[in-house]
C-alpha cells in the first residue's frame, strides 16, 4: 500500500524560497521564542514569512504569538491564518490546549498530514520551530524536507554546547545545511561559546543577551518586537537575508 500524502509534500513547499529550522537538541534554550520572533522580524522586513510549529507534544509558539484563537481556513487543504503578517500553523489549532501525548509513529503521521494539507502559497521564508531532542521530529524533517537549513541555538552553558556539537555532527553526516549558531541568553558572567563554534567550523551568527523583559512580552508580538531580545535577533536576521 502506498501513502499518497508523501507525493505532494514537495509541491506544497514548492513556492517557499527558503526553509529555516530552528534547532538545538536541548530544551529550554529559547528555540520557540527565536523561531517566532525571527518569523515576525522577517515579516517586519517586508518578506513573506511563515512559521510552522513542529513541537507536537508541547507546542508553545501560539502562546508566544498570542495566537490561541487563530484557526486555519479549510479550502482544498488547510490555509494557515496570518498572525501579525506571519502565515502560521501549529497542532495547537486542533488540540484545543489539551495535552497530546504522541509516540514516534504518531508524530511522523501528524507531520506528514500537516505537510500534505497545508497550502502555504508563496513565501520568502518558512521558519520551523523544532522540538528538543534528536528523535522523530528531527529525523522526519531531514527525511521529508530536503532543502531545509538549520539555525542552531545554544546557550553559553557547556551542557547546551555539548548537545549542539552532537546535533551538528548528525546534520553534517546527512549533509544537511547548517546555517550557523546563535548564542541565546548570553550574559557578562558567562563565557561566550563563539570560540568553540568557530573551532567547529560553523558560523557564529551572534549573541542574544538574557532579557528579563521577554516573559512580559510573551503573547504580545508588538511588545516582543520592541524589546532588546528582538533587537539582538534582528542583527542575526540581517545575516540570514
Amino acid at each position: 500500500m502506498i501513502d499518497p500524502r508523501l507525493s505532494v509534500i514537495d509541491e506544497r513547499l514548492g513556492r517557499i524560497k527558503r526553509l529555516i529550522a530552528v534547532a538545538s537538541g536541548k530544551g529550554g534554550v529559547g528555540k520557540s521564542l527565536i523561531a517566532s520572533t525571527l518569523a515576525l522580524i522577517l515579516s517586519e522586513k517586508g518578506f513573506r514569512a511563515g512559521l510552522m510549529d513542529l513541537d507536537f507534544t508541547n507546542p508553545s509558539t501560539h502562546l508566544i504569538l498570542g495566537a490561541e484563537s487563530a484557526y486555519p481556513l479549510e479550502d482544498k487543504g488547510v490555509v494557515p491564518p496570518k498572525v501579525r503578517g506571519v502565515s502560521y500553523t501549529s497542532i495547537s489549532f486542533f488540540t484545543g490546549g489539551k495535552p497530546s501525548p504522541l509516540r514516534g509513529e504518531d508524530v511522523t503521521n501528524a507531520f506528514i498530514e500537516i505537510l500534505a494539507l497545508t497550502r502555504w502559497g508563496d513565501l520568502d521564508y518558512l521558519v520551523i520551530d523544532t522540538p528538543p531532542g534528536m528523535g522523530d521530529a528531527l529525523l522526519d524533517l531531514l527525511r521529508l524536507i530536503k532543502r531545509v537549513g538549520f539555525l542552531v541555538v545554544s546557550t553559553p552553558s557547556r551542557l547546551s554546547l555539548e548537545t549542539i556539537k552532537k546535533l551538528i555532527e548528525i546534520l553534517r553526516s546527512v549533509r544537511a545545511q547548517v546555517i550557523g549558531v546563535v548564542e541565546n541568553m548570553a550574559s557578562a558572567e558567562m563565557k561566550s561559546i563563539r570560540g568553540e563554534v568557530e573551532e567547529l567550523g560553523e558560523r557564529y551568527l551572534g549573541s542574544i543577551s538574557f532579557d528579563p523583559e521577554v516573559e512580559e512580552a510573551i503573547g504580545n508580538p508588538d511588545k516582543l518586537l520592541g524589546i532588546r531580545f528582538a533587537e539582538d535577533l534582528r542583527k542575526v536576521a540581517d545575516k540570514l537575508v
Binding site: F56, E74, V78, I91, F93, F94, T95, G96, K98, P99, S100, P101, L102, D106, V107, N109, A110, E113, I114, L117
Partner: peptide
C-alpha cells in the same frame, strides 16, 4: 480536529 489531523485523537 480529528478529521484534519487524526493524531489529535490522543488529545
Amino acid at each position: 480536529a480529528i478529521h484534519v489531523i487524526p493524531e489529535v485523537a490522543h488529545a
